[in-house]
């Protein structure tokens, strides 16, 4: 319970960076923290005490494994997170080349 709530605190720190920070790179870092928090929460929910990783090494071994489904869902999400982060960073790079600043308040002013 406490360990799940720690993941929620990490999520809230990422949300704090997104909502209140005015630097674009900090906002992208906030998105990365949210991704980590959700991935970690999924992997922690599927954990069972004293069980093994879900890989069969002998044909007739007892089936004492942790839950493989959250791991399968998170595995693809990690790579997707890298793709979306790169897309956000390319937009940020374009904005910097246009306005020469990362400050979103300045960008709003320059827009008029």
């Amino acid at each position: 319970m406490i360990i799940f709530l720690s993941c929620i605190i990490l999520f809230l720190i990422g949300l704090y960076a997104i909502v209140t920070k005015r630097n674009l790179i900090k906002i992208v870092i906030g998105f990365a923290f949210i991704e980590y928090a959700i991935n970690l929460l999924f992997a922690l929910i599927g954990f069972r005490r004293g069980m093994l990783a879900p890989i069969i090494t002998q044909v007739d071994m007892p089936h004492k494994f942790v839950d493989p489904i959250p791991q399968a869902l998170v595995l693809t999400a990690i790579v997707i997170a890298l793709g979306t982060t790169a897309l956000m960073l390319s937009v940020v790079l374009r904005i910097y080349n246009r306005y020469k600043t990362f400050d979103i308040a300045e960008i709003r002013k320059l827009k008029g």
Partner: peptide, 27 residues
């Protein structure tokens, strides 16, 4: 609670994983 996951769907995947697909890595 942490460490006691319920495995309703996952137990089926674990039981059928090796016989039906032939792969040893369940993920």
């Amino acid at each position: 609670a942490f460490g006691n996951a319920t495995m309703k769907v996952a137990s089926e995947y674990i039981r059928l994983g090796l016989p039906q697909t032939g792969g040893a890595n369940l993920v």
